[in-house]
Design a binder for these strands. Structure first.
Lengths: 208, 208
DNA sequence: GCCTGTGAAGCTATTCACAGCT
DNA sequence: AGCTGTGAATAGCTTCACAGGC
């Protein structure tokens, strides 16, 4: 019953692609077309559609609007998800700018930093708190997802605080592994690893 | 003979963990210990060791130094790899700061931006060029890996330029899919997707 | 006893291929 | 004719389990 990580990733990607298509006025799409946009296969797209419970027609394929709604129903929680961002350096600001009023169902509602310079300000529509307040604010605002964008040396401490505050999902951008209590999901966005990977496959003459 | 992406990712992770261990004075490690640090299994670590051609001993496990060297021999090219960064916004600067004199075998040697304000300056030890010079500089400096950290709207254009310049590996941080000619490897670092994934699994009561 | 190295087994994910529909 | 939905087949990855060695 638990959907594999890979499938969730693809579904999230489909949604973004579909939103773009919708913006272009596209009404329907065939599996092989969506597959091409997502760098996948038609069969895989159809399997994923089964997973989220959407059904298409041989005549027109899948209705774009249906897909977007079904993906929303599958991926999103009923009430919008509150996200905390820890670390308001360049990376943190990039993420805030990026999320600025984007997703209706997912918004960064609180940011944290140790720098007294930043605390108290509102950056990209989001209030900045001192790190000491993390657990309290997380609880008050019912935040269950945290993004860790702090230097490696303090990432584990931040993760501990997030977990204590009740966060159940962490996105870690710091180049360290985190130790989290059971029940807390962690995913890593590792720039060094990605570049090393790209360098390796660049040399191998491509894969994908 | 081509190593799967998953394995390359783990090997890159092992190296980082091992470098930390080495810094702590650790000399040898058993597969189950490395597995714990990497959130994997002992059997998997041993398989990966086979892949890179390292052999351990039942008595002491694997020698940390051996592993680091073997991974270097496996992942790295003989001469250091030159990387180009396109987009010197918050995200680009975060990446530059992060790479600042880090990896011996992988360095960002050129950055590009359209902002005339940034062009000509040297940020984090790296010269900033105007976007128009991209293809020329890429060729001159024999750059084969590019990092795309520009807004979504111009990411495809940047990818086209990189590919024309001869880049064979691209790390894309913009939230769009790129169309690249065959032979160019592309990998995506998608913050939105990661947060959506974390939110989904946070709700499911964790995996991993 | 506890480790590594590895063939074999097991499992998961992807793709095939085709019936059914329009 | 060309699509979807899906059981069956395949491919790919991970884990088991054990021989061999300190």
């Amino acid at each position: 019953m638990t959907t594999p990580e890979r499938v969730i990733e693809r579904i999230s990607l489909y949604r973004r692609l579909l939103n773009t298509l919708k913006g272009e006025g596209r009404v329907a799409i065939f599996s092989h077309q969506l597959a091409q946009l997502a760098s996948g296969t038609a069969a895989q797209v159809r399997r994923d559609m089964m997973t989220i419970g959407v059904t298409g027609s041989p005549a027109h394929g899948y209705r774009v609007q249906d897909l977007i709604e079904a993906i929303g129903g599958y991926l999103d929680s009923v009430q919008p998800e509150n996200v905390a961002l820890v670390g308001i350096g360049n990376l943190g600001r990039a993420i805030m700018a990026f999320f600025q009023g984007r997703r209706p169902n997912l918004s960064i509602v609180a940011a944290f930093d140790v720098d007294p310079e930043k605390v108290g300000r509102v950056i990209h529509g989001c209030r900045c708190h001192p790190l000491e307040d993390l657990e309290r604010v997380i609880r008050e605002r019912d935040i269950r997802v945290g993004v860790v964008a702090v230097p490696a040396a303090v990432a584990q401490d931040v993760a501990d605080r997030l977990a204590r505050g009740g966060v159940r999902g962490i996105v870690n951008l710091a180049p360290v592994r985190l130790n989290v209590p059971p029940g807390v999901y962690t995913t890593y966005l590792d720039i060094t690893m990605s570049i090393e990977k790209a360098a390796y496959f660049a040399r191998q003459g491509a894969a994908q």
